[in-house]
Simulated scan of single mutants.
Amino acid sequence: MPDYLVVAGLSLVTAAIVMTLTAVAAARSGHVSVVDTAWGIALSTVSVVCAAWSGTWQSWVLVALVGIWAGRLSSHIFTRSRGHGEDPRYLAVLGGPLSEVGLGVAVRRVFLVQGAAVWLVSLPLQAAAVADLSWTWVAWLGVVVWAVGVLFETVGDAQLAAYKRDPVRGPVMDRGLWSWSRHPNYFGDACVWWGIWLAGGLASGWLAALVSVLAPVAMTVWLVWITGARLLEKTMMKRPGYAEYAARTSMFVPLPPRRARAGHRR
C-alpha cells in the first residue's frame, strides 16, 4: 500500500504539472482547446514516471503503448485544429471565449477536470508499477486489443480526411469503417484503453484489475455519452441524410449495416 500511495501521488503531481503548463499555453494562445493536445502528453509522461518507479518490462511496454497512442492523437488534433478558433465545446463549457471569462474559470472548469481525468485514466499504469505481473499472456492480449484500437483510430481518421478532400462527396460520411460504425475512431480509442487495462491492470492480478478497471470504464463512458459520440450526434442529426445513416449504422460498436442503400456511392 505505501508504494501505491507514492506512485499515485507522483502520477497526480505529474498530471498537475502538465496541466499547469497547458494553462499557461492557453493563456498565451487564447485557446483552451490546447488541452486536447496536452491530454496525450500528460498520460505519456505519467506512464514514464510509473515505469521509472517500477523498472519492469511490463511498465515499459505500457510506456510504448501510451506513447504511440499519444503521439498519434496529439499530432492528429494539432493538425486538425491548426488555424481554427476555439473549439465550440469549450466555449459552451466556459460560457464564452477565454479572453472574456478569464483564466481562473478555465482552470476550474477545464484544467482541474482534465488533470483529474488523466490521473483516473492512468490507474492501470499505476497498478502495473506496484504489482507483480501475474499473467504474461493477458499482457500480450492487451497489446493485441490496443493494436486493434489504434488501427480503427488511424484508418477511421484517414478515411474521414479523404472524404473531406473529395469534391463530390455526399452530405454524410458512410464509407469504409464508417459504414459499420458512426464513430469508429471513438470505438478505437475505447479499445486502446481496454487493451492498456488488460496489459497493466488485469495482467497484474485480480486486485490490480479491480482497482484500475474504473479507467477504461470511465474512458468508454466519456467517449460514448459525455464528450464524444452522443455530444457529436446532437449536431450531426441536423445534417441532411444523417438520420437515415443513423438508422442503418451502429453508433459505436462496428456491426454490418442494417440495410443497403440503393445507388450508394462507394
Rank of each mutant, 00 (worst) to 15 (best):
V130A: 04
V66I: 15
W69V: 03
V93N: 06
L125F: 14
G55E: 09
I68P: 03
G104A: 14
I77C: 08
V121G: 04
A64P: 02
V144Q: 01
A51H: 13
R109M: 14
V66Q: 08
I68S: 02
S99W: 10
V118K: 01
A92H: 13
F78A: 13
Y90V: 15
A70C: 05
L123D: 00
L133T: 10
V63E: 03
V144E: 00
L120R: 02
L73I: 05
V150L: 13
G95C: 12
P97C: 06
R72E: 02
A92K: 13
R82D: 05
V144R: 00
V49N: 03
L62T: 10
L120V: 11
G96H: 09
A139T: 10
R82M: 12
E100M: 07
L103D: 09
A128E: 05
A64W: 11
A52Q: 11
L123F: 07
H76T: 00
L91C: 04
G71Q: 10
G104H: 10
L94Y: 10
Q114Y: 11
V113Y: 10
L141P: 00
W57F: 04
W69A: 04
S75M: 08
W146S: 07
H84R: 13
W140E: 01
S122T: 03
R82C: 02
W146P: 01
I77S: 09
L151A: 11
I68K: 02
F111K: 09
R89D: 05
V113N: 07
W137F: 13
V63A: 04
G104Y: 11
L123W: 08
W53F: 15
T79P: 00
Q58P: 08
L125S: 08
S59N: 15
S99K: 15
V110W: 11
L112Q: 11
D87K: 09
V121P: 02
L94Q: 11
H84P: 00
E86V: 02
A117G: 05
L133R: 12
V113C: 07
V144G: 04
T79H: 14
P124V: 05
F152P: 02
G55C: 08
G115S: 06
A129E: 02
W60G: 04
V148L: 06
V148F: 08
L133D: 04
W146F: 12
L62K: 10
V63R: 04
R82F: 06
W119I: 04
A106H: 08
W146V: 01
V138R: 05
G142A: 10
R109L: 13
A129W: 03
S75G: 00
D132T: 13
G83I: 01
A147D: 01
S99D: 15
G67M: 11
S59Q: 14
G104L: 10
A52N: 03
V130D: 02
V113F: 12
R82P: 00
A128G: 06
G115T: 05
H76N: 12
L120S: 05
V113P: 09
A106S: 14
A147C: 01
S54Q: 07
V145D: 02
V48A: 14
V150W: 03
